[in-house]
Every structure is written in structure tokens, then in C-alpha cells.
Design a binder for these strands. Structure first.
Lengths: 252, 252
DNA sequence: CGCGGGGTTGACGCACATCAAAGAGAGTGG
DNA sequence: CCACTCTCTTTGATGTGCGTCAACCCCGCG
């Protein structure tokens, strides 16, 4: 069965000077790399209008990069750290839509519309690249190729969401949590980040909200996995010990 | 809360001669109308290469218009009848992804990829329009506009799926079934079809599979709604009596 | 007429939500 | 450095929504 992920993927940028490079996704591993290549951003500002590409903006933990209903301006790529996207609800607790790891895109869902359909907030101190998509025509690149890149990007997103829906609806709590852990691990691996041991930057209730479980259930399931020797959890730190066993659980 | 739907929307075609027109979606209400307009298909075959647009193909109940892994060729628009899309599973029962009503698209999720991610099967005797998307460059239309139309189409799909995921994961059986009924009704209304009374062309177990419920639960919930006077169900025929009350249920 | 597949209805059990309370970290201030 | 608080996490006890199993019903079809 398809692991629980949700996806949007990032914008290529030059690596920064003198910070923990190992925790930052390389441009070649960033989901927006294809788009950046089309735009010829790989080389330093080669003919790019100023302010069209904002590299490595710092975002503090808890800060939001856009809110629901804000008019659409940019797509963001996570370079470092992590984000959550959610729909604030007047009456009830907010509805979590997804988590975004290094190399992944945020805001792609708004491309077709006028405004962002959700709010995006940093789960930890992070860095993002930003492309002012509305100003793309200025850059003089062939629009056709840019559009093609966007279509492929959205297509992956659609395919992904379909898989996610199919997976989520029928799975037990154990399967969802196992899938969630494997999904995080796979996505980190895909972007060239450490993937056997990593941080759960989101809270248990965020995970529960995302998976449709109570936070207590998430907690219980994690400790059960830990006692069974499948993983090691200490606070927010997770180590995947037996990925095959987790995969087994998902398959029932 | 967002009602349960999933969406892809259709290709504009000329209405057929001498068949139950009231059960067939008008071109102006078809989801692919924007794309058709860009291609200038509204008028009869104005400069369209032969075989690029196939209008009003008959599809018998149970017939599949494409299977998973088939290489991508076309997007389909339902003109009449209904379809289900699903992922066949070797081990277990098939996983249902969605239902497609008149005016809605099928196969849009494959645009970015090489092959269809699911199988599409007619739930009743139906009619579809088909656009050979791979051959679009031949038509001489500005590719840019076509791409823009596709981007918007995919964007809607992404937004829709996000809403669906958010809704599905947290809802009770009653909320899911109520949302499902309202979703069907709204989608029919949107396409100018009869929407207070209509056919549930799919089986109870299809609905259950789609909503992540047992078919018995779907059945029980429907009869409960019926006894409460919210709807009227007789076999496959449904009449929505108190849409407001159903909407109320969804909001908890 | 009998047969078969989908639909309905009931009885029962379990997985997970809910409620409650105690434990553990991260700040904050003395 | 140690209290103190606040939030997040863990763990336990209890209730319930829905899945599962099983029987029966209804309708279409040969």
C-alpha cells in the first residue's frame, strides 16, 4: 500500500555559506530544480529581474509564510527545517493538510487560483527559497517550458494525493503511523538528507490531526513500535531500526 | 466542512441527435469546455485533425475505457452516465478512487505521467468525449493557452483533493454519507442535471469502499437518514428531501 | 420456478476516542 | 543554581462507533 505522504517539491538555490550544510537540501535534490533549470537560475543571477527569486530567507519557528486567503504571489521551497500547512477553522481545531520537508514545495496548490487555500507555518527555525510566480513572464524565458514544468509538478501532486486518499481511508492506526514514519524517511532519503534517524519536528497532536487519530493513539502506537524494537523514540528524535517490519505492517 | 467529492471536469462536445437529452450534460456545462474553447472545438470540426477529438463514444455498463498502467493517450469527459476509477489490487479487493458524473473529466491525473494511475469503468451505459492530448501540438493552436487551461484544471484537482483529504479523515460514518449525497447532488446541479432526485448508479459496497466504510454501515446510515425524513431511498433511486439537515450533519 | 447477487437487519466484539491524571522538557524569573 | 509554570507527552480506565459475521430479504434472470 502507498505510504502516507503528500507532496509538493522545491526551488533550486545556491547553498549558503557557513551553516550546517548537512541539514540543508542541495539544489540538485530540490523539487523545484527542474523549474529553476528552465529559468536558468542555476548560475548566479543570470539575467533574473531583481526580487523574482528570493534565496534562503530565514523563517523563525512559529512564523507563517502565507495565510489562507492571502492572494497568491509565490511558490516556496523548503531548504532547511520543516513546515505544516493547515486550514484554520473558526469553530473547531485547525485541520492539518500536510508537512513539508527540505526540498519540497509549499503553495503549489494555489497556482491555478487567486489565493492560497491554506496557511503555512514553520515547525522549527527554517530557510526557504521563494519564486514570484506571478512575475515569471518578465524573465524572458520561454513560457512554454515553464508551464510544462508546472504541469508535471501539479501532476505529481495529483497522483500523490490520490494515493494518499486511497491509503488513509482504509488503514488502521498502526498502519497510518507506520506509513507516516516511512513516508518521512523516504522523503528525506530522496532529498539526500539523513533518513534513518531524524527529528519529528511536529507535535503528536499535529501528527494525529494529519492522520485522523487522537494524539494519545499516536503516542501509544509509537511506544508500541519502540517496545517491539521497530524504532527508537526519545522525545522528538526517531530512529528507524526495522524499516522492512514497518513496511510489513502497512501491507497488513 | 467540505463535502466529499473529487473532481476532474470534462470536454465540450456538440449534443447528439435524438436521445434523452435531459440526462446528458450540455457542452456549456462540461468541465472541459474551457479547453475546448481554447481549441476552438465549439464550432464543428474547424481545422481539427481527424481522430483528435472523438465525440460521444458509447460505453456499455461494465466496460473499461482505460486500465491502470496503460500508456497515457487521452483525457475523457463523461457526457452521460457515470464511471468509477479504482486501483486493482492483486491481494485484496480493489481500492476505489472516485466516481465521475456527467461533465467531469477522467484521466486528468495521468497528464504528467507516462501511464494511467488507475482503471476507469462505466457504472451504467454511458457516453464519453475523448481528446487525444498527446496529439495537441498538431492542432496548430497556441500551446501556451492549452497549457494554461490544463494548469487550471490540475490546480482545481489539487485543491479539491486537499479538501477531500481534510474532510474524509476526521468524519464519522454519518458525516461521510451525508457529505457524499450532498456532493453528488451539488455536482449534478453544477452541470445542469436533475439534482434533487437521482440514481445511485454505484453499489453500496462501492460507496463504502470509497468512503472507507463497510457496505453494511452505508446501508444502515441511508435507512437511518430515510427514517429521519432527510432523504427517500428506494433501491438505487435517491431523493434529497432536506439538504439543509444533511449539511447540518456534516458541520457536526 | 429456483437460483444468485446485492441489499437490509441484527448480534457481538474490538479498535480507537475520550476522559483523567501524572511525568518530562523548555523557558522564566528569583 | 533551583523553584515554578506551561506545554507536550505518556499511560491508564472507560465507553462507543463501526467492522465483522450471519441470516434473511428482495429483485432480476435463466
Amino acid at each position: 500500500m502507498v505510504p502516507l505522504t503528500f507532496a509538493t517539491r522545491g526551488i533550486a538555490c545556491a547553498p549558503p555559506a557557513g551553516c550546517e550544510v548537512e541539514l540543508e537540501v542541495a539544489c540538485s535534490n530540490c523539487g523545484l530544480d527542474p523549474l529553476c533549470n528552465v529559468l536558468d537560475y542555476a548560475g548566479e543571477k543570470s539575467g533574473i529581474p531583481d526580487g523574482l527569486l528570493l534565496r534562503h530567507r530565514q523563517v523563525a519557528r512559529g512564523e507563517t509564510i502565507f495565510r489562507m486567503e492571502d492572494s497568491f504571489r509565490s511558490i516556496f521551497a523548503v531548504k532547511q527545517g520543516s513546515f505544516k500547512t493547515f486550514i484554520p477553522r473558526p469553530d473547531r481545531v485547525a485541520q492539518l493538510l500536510g508537512f513539508h520537508l527540505p526540498g519540497e514545495l509549499i503553495g503549489a496548490g494555489a497556482i491555478a487560483g487567486e489565493s492560497y487555500p491554506c496557511t503555512a507555518r514553520a515547525l522549527e527555525n527554517s530557510r526557504v527559497c521563494e519564486i514570484r510566480l506571478g512575475r515569471l513572464p518578465e524573465c524572458g524565458r520561454p513560457l512554454q517550458q515553464v508551464q510544462q514544468a508546472i504541469i508535471e509538478l501539479l501532476g505529481r501532486e495529483v497522483a500523490f494525493n490520490n494515493a494518499l486518499i486511497a491509503a488513509l481511508v482504509h488503514q488502521s492506526a498502526e498502519q497510518r503511523v507506520a506509513g507516516f514514519l516511512l513516508s518521512l524517511s523516504e522523503r528525506l532519503q530522496q532529498r539526500g538528507m539523513p533518513w534513518t534517524e531524524f527529528n519529528l519536528s511536529m507535535s503528536r497532536s499535529d501528527i494525529g490531526n494529519y492522520l485522523g487519530l487522537a494524539s494519545e493513539t499516536v503516542s501509544r502506537t509509537l511506544t508500541r513500535f519502540s517496545k517491539a524494537g521497530l524504532i527508537d523514540v526519545r522525545h522528538k528524535r526517531v530512529c528507524i531500526i526495522q524499516p522492512e517490519a514497518l513496511a510489513e505492517i502497512i501491507l497488513e
